[in-house]
Design a protein around this nucleic acid. Structure first.
Lengths: 171, 171
DNA sequence: CCGTTATGTCAGTTTTGTTGACACATTAAT
DNA sequence: ATTAATGTGTCAACAAAACTGACATAACGG
């Protein structure tokens, strides 16, 4: 069977290629997206795990430990090592919850905020450039595809209800 | 300053929110995309690193070790451990290059092809569902944004020159 | 022949994740 | 009021997947 005739009788051929390109787009983009903060992280002797924690605490001030765990999808023992470091070194503060005093609500200190801005700066710039090149319509398409790939539960974080929408819920 | 007036005088506010949403879209989507193959991988006592190697060898049959390294962006020592396992267990074959006999050209065995299909099946299904929900226009937007985020060098892998376009170059 | 390239390997280390067990304080339920 | 469940933390051992640095071999290219 020649290539062309296969494509005629098998409409799934192009689709398969399209899906594989999707897999690779995701791989290459994520690979380079994570890479841009590495140099800065190394200067603080931190890794990508620290960045993720700092980022999501910055994004969800007052988040509980368990909510942070369900975002990161790692074990509390894994989180503990990284979070403990960040607390000890004064980047993150823990306050006992008011309604539920078992909770340890996490917020960034001034120092933590400063580090967060430094760390995320290049990632933001990378996305900004990609958005600019691609155009507003493409960004909306990107949004839709990404939302379709994530766990249904997390999609509501991105509901289009204004800039405060994200912050209504912590996890 | 009230929220609304801030948004009026500071056009960067929404942009900042949009960029942060972009960061998170990428995080959540990639988190769940990688997760779907884990159960299958565990059955073979393999990890995500094995999957990446199998995937890219499947996608670029006859790829050289150094080209594979520049896709994965890891060290040869890291690759060696994972690749060695896959070769020893009969999933990947190494053939000496013909024009350049220093090269070890990598291809999947039958067994390797079978495993690759099993492993990638769920990821393909996840992307297919996301593409279906989002629609063809959104997929094109997704494509553009992702390409803008990756290293310029890798963008040519996705040039729209038919289904063979990807395979013309290995790395 | 000699410098460079492609690959592999030995040895040690780091980061980031895992399981399992247990402790403590607090909240919720019976 | 006692008991069960929840939120958090911690100790210990382990595993996956990355890293650095050094060195070795074979083959290519001028």
């Amino acid at each position: 069977m020649a290539d062309i005739s296969t494509r005629k009788v098998n409409p799934l051929f192009l689709r398969e290629e399209e899906l594989r390109q999707g897999i690779e787009l995701l791989f290459y983009a994520y690979r380079d997206f994570t890479e841009v903060a590495d140099q800065m992280l190394a200067q603080y002797n931190f890794g990508r795990a620290h960045h993720r924690v700092i980022y999501f605490v910055s994004r969800n001030p007052g988040i509980t430990v368990s909510d942070l765990l369900s975002i990161l999808k790692i074990t509390k023992q894994s989180l503990s090592r990284v979070l403990g470091q960040l607390v000890r070194e004064g980047f993150i503060e823990q306050k006992t919850g008011v309604q539920d005093r078992r909770q340890r609500l996490l917020t960034l200190t001034e120092k933590g905020e400063a580090l967060e801005r430094e760390l995320t700066e290049k990632q933001r710039a990378l996305i900004a450039a990609a958005y600019r090149e691609a155009g507003a319509e493409s960004v909306e398409g990107f949004r839709k595809v990404m939302m379709g790939m994530m766990e249904e539960k997390d999609r509501k974080r991105f509901e289009d209800d204004g800039p405060g929408g994200q912050r209504r819920r912590a996890g």
